[in-house]
Measured scan of single mutants.
Amino acid sequence: MTLTLTVPPGAKVRVRITNENGETTEIEVEPGETVTITLPAGSTVRVEVEVVDPDGRKRTETFTLKP
């Protein structure tokens, strides 16, 4: 399973991925970048995406991906 994120110009994104064992991976994606994350097959993962807009506003979306 893959997750692809494209960050709009001016925004910053931090992604936290937590697996079933509670292990967390965190990455930051710079403005204008596209990143593809390969998620472990057969695992349920929690993905938290934090977006910081150019004006400093933050918003966070959290979702769970199941196999």
Results as ranks from 00 to 15, higher is better:
Val7Phe: 15
Asn19Arg: 10
Thr64Asn: 04
Glu20Asn: 05
Ile27Trp: 10
Asp53Ile: 00
Val49Trp: 02
Thr36Arg: 12
Glu26Phe: 03
Arg16Phe: 06
Pro40Asp: 10
Glu61Ala: 08
Pro67Arg: 01
Thr25Lys: 06
Val35Tyr: 13
Gly22Leu: 06
Pro54Tyr: 04
Glu61Cys: 15
Arg59Phe: 11
Thr62Pro: 00
Thr25Met: 11
Thr24Asp: 06
Val29Asp: 15
Val15Gln: 02
Thr4Gln: 05
Thr64Trp: 15
Leu39Phe: 14
Gly32Asp: 11
Thr64Val: 13
Glu30Trp: 03
Glu48Asp: 07
Thr64His: 06
Gly56Arg: 00
Leu5Met: 12
Pro40Trp: 15
Asp53Val: 00
Lys66His: 14
Glu50Ser: 04
Val51Glu: 01
Asn19Met: 09
Glu28Asp: 11
Gly10Trp: 01
Pro31Ala: 06
Leu3Cys: 14
Pro8Met: 12
Ala41Tyr: 13
Leu5Ala: 07
Gly10Ile: 04
Thr60Asn: 01
Pro54Arg: 06
Thr2Pro: 04
Asn21Arg: 09
Ser43Arg: 15
Pro67Thr: 14
Lys12Tyr: 08
Val47Leu: 02
Val49Ile: 13
Thr18Trp: 14
Thr18Leu: 09
Ile17Cys: 12
Val45Arg: 05
Glu20His: 05
Val51Ile: 12
Asn21Leu: 07
Glu30His: 08
Glu23Gly: 09
Thr4Tyr: 11
Glu20Ala: 05
Glu50Gln: 04
Thr4Leu: 09
Thr64Gln: 03
Pro40Gln: 11
Thr34His: 11
Val52Asp: 01
Thr62Gln: 03
Thr34Asn: 12
Glu61Thr: 14
Glu50Tyr: 01
Thr24Arg: 07
Ile37Phe: 11
Val29Met: 13
Phe63Glu: 01
Leu39Cys: 14
Val7Leu: 11
Leu3Tyr: 05
Asp55Gln: 02
Ala41Asn: 10
Thr44Tyr: 11
Lys58Ala: 03
Arg14Val: 13
Ile37Arg: 11
Pro67Asp: 10
Arg57Ile: 06
Val52Gly: 01
Asn19Lys: 08
Glu30Leu: 04
Glu50His: 03
Thr36Pro: 10
Pro40Cys: 15
Thr24Trp: 05
Pro31Glu: 05
Ile17Tyr: 15
Leu3Val: 09
Glu30Gln: 05
Thr24Ile: 06
Thr25Phe: 12
Glu28Gln: 10
Ser43Ile: 13
Arg16Thr: 04
Val45Gly: 09
Thr44Gln: 05
Glu50Lys: 01
Gly56Tyr: 00
Thr44Gly: 04
Val52Asn: 01
Val7Ile: 10
Val52Leu: 02
Glu28Leu: 02
Val15Trp: 05
Gly22Ile: 09
Lys12Thr: 12
Thr2His: 09
Thr24Lys: 08
Gly42Arg: 14
Ile27Gln: 10
Val49Lys: 01
Glu20Thr: 03
Glu23Val: 10
Pro40Phe: 12
Pro31Trp: 11
Thr24Val: 05
Leu65Pro: 01
Thr60Ala: 01
Thr2Phe: 13
Asn19Glu: 08
Ala11Arg: 01
Pro8Leu: 12
Arg16Ala: 06
Asn19Val: 15
Pro67Met: 14
Val52Cys: 06
Arg16Asp: 06
Arg14Gly: 12
Thr44Glu: 12
Arg57Asn: 11
Thr36Ile: 15
Thr62Leu: 03
Val13Arg: 00
Pro67Lys: 01
Val35His: 13
Ser43Cys: 12
Val47Thr: 00
Thr24Gln: 08
Lys66Thr: 15
Val7Trp: 15
Arg57Cys: 09
Lys12Glu: 15
Arg46Ser: 04
Pro67Gly: 07
Arg14Lys: 08
Val49Arg: 01
Pro40Ala: 08
Thr62Asn: 02
Val49Glu: 00
Val13Trp: 02
Val47Glu: 00
Asp53His: 04
Pro54Cys: 12
Thr25Gln: 11
Gly32Arg: 12
Glu61His: 15
Lys66Cys: 15
Gly22Thr: 09
Gly42Cys: 15
Ser43His: 09
Thr38Asn: 08
Val13Asp: 03
Thr60Val: 11
Lys58Cys: 07
Ser43Pro: 05
Glu26Thr: 04
Arg57Leu: 03
Arg57Asp: 01
Leu65Gln: 00
Thr4Val: 10
Glu28Asn: 09
Gly22Asn: 13
Thr34Ile: 13
Arg16Pro: 00
Leu3His: 08
Glu26Arg: 08
Thr24Leu: 05
Glu20Gly: 03
Thr18Met: 06
Lys58Leu: 05
Lys58Ile: 14
Arg16Ile: 05
Thr2Asn: 05
Thr36Met: 11
Val15Asp: 00
Thr44Asn: 03
Leu65Ser: 01
Val35Lys: 05
Asp55Arg: 00
Val52Ile: 09
Thr34Ser: 07
Glu33Lys: 06
Arg57Pro: 00
Glu30Pro: 06
Val51Tyr: 13
Thr24Ser: 04
Gly42Asn: 08
Thr25Ala: 08
Glu33His: 10
Gly22Arg: 06
Gly32Ser: 14
Gly42Pro: 10
Lys66Trp: 15
Val52Phe: 02
Pro8Tyr: 13
Glu23Pro: 09
Thr44Ser: 07
Leu5Arg: 03
Val29Trp: 15
Gly22Gln: 09
Arg14Tyr: 11
Ser43Val: 11
Arg57Tyr: 02
Pro40Lys: 12
Gly10Cys: 06
Val7Met: 09
Ile27Cys: 11
Asn21Gly: 09
Thr25Ile: 10
Glu33Met: 07
Val29Ala: 04
Gly10Tyr: 03
Val29Arg: 10
Asn21Met: 08
Thr2Glu: 03
Thr38Gln: 06
Leu5Ile: 07
Val29Leu: 06
Thr34Glu: 09
Glu33Gln: 07
Thr60Ser: 01
Lys58Glu: 01
Thr62Tyr: 12
Lys12Pro: 03
Ala41Trp: 14
Arg16Ser: 05
Glu23Trp: 13
Arg59Thr: 08
Pro8Ile: 13
Val49Met: 04
Glu20Ser: 05
Met1Arg: 02
Ala41Asp: 08
Gly32His: 11
Thr6Ile: 09
Ala41Glu: 06
Val15Phe: 03
Gly42Glu: 10
Thr2Leu: 05
Asn19Pro: 15
Gly10Phe: 03
Glu30Phe: 07
Arg14Cys: 12
Asp55Ala: 02
Arg59Asn: 01
Thr60Leu: 05
Asp55Val: 00
Ala41Pro: 04
Ile27Glu: 11
Glu33Ser: 13
Glu33Ala: 11
Leu39Trp: 10
Phe63Tyr: 06
Thr6Val: 05
Asp53Ser: 03
Asp55Phe: 02
Ile27Phe: 10
Arg16Gln: 03
Ser43Met: 14
Val52Met: 04
Leu5Val: 07
Thr6Ser: 07
Thr4Pro: 09
Thr38Ser: 06
Lys58Trp: 02
Pro31Phe: 10
Pro67Asn: 12
Thr44Pro: 12
Val29Ser: 12
Thr44Lys: 02
Val45Asn: 08
Asp53Cys: 15
Glu26His: 06
Val51Asp: 01
Gly10Ala: 12
Ala41His: 07
Thr38Arg: 07
Asp53Trp: 14
Val15Gly: 03
Ala11Val: 01
Thr64Lys: 02
Thr25Glu: 08
Val7Ala: 01
Met1Thr: 03
Glu20Val: 04
Gly10Leu: 10
Thr25Trp: 11
Thr6Gln: 12
Thr62Asp: 01
Arg14Ser: 14
Arg57Ser: 13
Ser43Gly: 14
Glu23Lys: 06
Glu30Val: 13
Asp55Ile: 00
Met1Asp: 07
Val29Gln: 14
Ile37Asp: 04
Ile37Tyr: 08
Pro8Ala: 12
Lys58Phe: 02
Arg16Asn: 04
Asn19Leu: 08
Glu48His: 02
Glu61Gly: 01
Glu48Asn: 02
Met1Gly: 05
Thr34Leu: 14
Thr36Asp: 08
Glu26Gln: 05
Phe63Val: 12
Glu48Ile: 03
Thr34Pro: 12
Pro67Ile: 15
Lys12Cys: 08
Thr38Trp: 09
Gly56Cys: 01
Thr64Gly: 00
Ile37His: 11
Asn19Thr: 11
Val45Glu: 02
Glu28Met: 04
Val13Ala: 08
Asn21Gln: 11
Asp55Cys: 14
Glu23Arg: 06
Lys66Val: 15
Val15Arg: 00
Thr18Phe: 12
Thr62Glu: 06
Phe63Gln: 01
Thr60Glu: 01
Arg46Val: 12
Val47Asp: 00
Glu28Ala: 08
Val49Tyr: 01
Met1Tyr: 11
Glu61Ser: 04
Arg59Cys: 15
Thr2Lys: 08
Val47Pro: 00
Thr24Tyr: 06
Gly56Ala: 00
Arg14Glu: 13
Arg46His: 05
Pro67Glu: 05
Glu33Asp: 11
Val13Gln: 02
Ala41Ile: 13
Gly32Tyr: 12
Arg14Pro: 05
Thr60Asp: 00
Glu48Lys: 02
Lys66Ile: 14
Val13Leu: 02
Asp55Leu: 01
Glu28Trp: 02
Leu65Arg: 00
Thr62Met: 03
Thr60Gln: 02
Glu50Gly: 00
Leu3Trp: 10
Asp53Ala: 03
Gly42Trp: 14
Ile27Asp: 09
Ala41Ser: 11
Glu30Cys: 11
Arg57Ala: 03
Ile27Ala: 12
Lys12Gln: 14
Ser43Trp: 04
Arg16Tyr: 05
Ser43Lys: 14
Lys58Arg: 05
Thr18Gln: 09
Pro8Asn: 12
Val13Asn: 01
Glu50Phe: 01
Phe63Ala: 02
Asp55Thr: 02
Arg46Thr: 10
Arg16Cys: 09
Ala11Trp: 07
Thr34Arg: 10
Pro54Phe: 10
Thr2Trp: 14
Arg59Val: 07
Leu65Trp: 15
Thr24Glu: 08
Thr44Trp: 14
Pro31Thr: 06
Glu50Ala: 02
Asn21Phe: 06
Pro9Cys: 07
Val52Pro: 00
Thr25Val: 13
Val7Gln: 04
Glu26Trp: 05
Pro31Val: 14
